[in-house]
Simulated assay, not measured.
Amino acid sequence: MLIAETLMSGEKCVCDLQVLVGADMSTVSKHLTLMRKAGVLTCEKRGLNIYYSLACTCLGTFLRCLDELVPEVDACGTSCCD
């Protein structure tokens, strides 16, 4: 979800996403490929770099809505609904 949330602010180069995630490039590329095949992301190659963006601009609204639905976790690691 970190990648999708980051892309809500606009397209990013795969190298920027790799730094953000903190994983090796092959792992990040695999995740991006899965998200692209699922229809969540689009990509565009420019020179040696590949830029990713959200395929649907309303995805950001959906993710923010999900954040509101997830119960907060208190300091002891349990949600309010347990």
Rank of each mutant, 00 (worst) to 15 (best):
M35G: 03
T61W: 13
L7H: 07
V28D: 05
L54Q: 01
I50R: 07
G22N: 09
G22M: 12
L59N: 02
G60F: 04
L48F: 09
L7Q: 02
L17S: 00
Q18H: 08
L41I: 03
S9R: 08
C65P: 09
I3T: 02
G60W: 05
Y52K: 01
I50W: 02
C15V: 12
T42P: 03
K30G: 15
T6K: 08
M1A: 10
L69R: 13
L63R: 05
G47Q: 04
I3Q: 05
C15S: 13
A75R: 06
G10S: 06
S53R: 07
G39L: 01
T57D: 02
C56D: 15
K45Y: 02
H31N: 13
A38E: 07
A75F: 05
E11I: 02
S9P: 09
Y52T: 02
C43A: 06
D67W: 03
L34E: 12
L66S: 03
E5F: 12
R64Y: 11
K30W: 14
C81M: 11
V73K: 10
K12Q: 13
S26R: 14
A75P: 07
T27L: 13
G47V: 06
V73G: 00
C76T: 11
G60P: 09
T33H: 09
E11A: 10
D67N: 06
H31L: 12
K45E: 02
S29P: 08
Q18N: 15
A55P: 01
L20E: 05
E72V: 09
E68I: 11
V21Q: 00
V70Q: 09
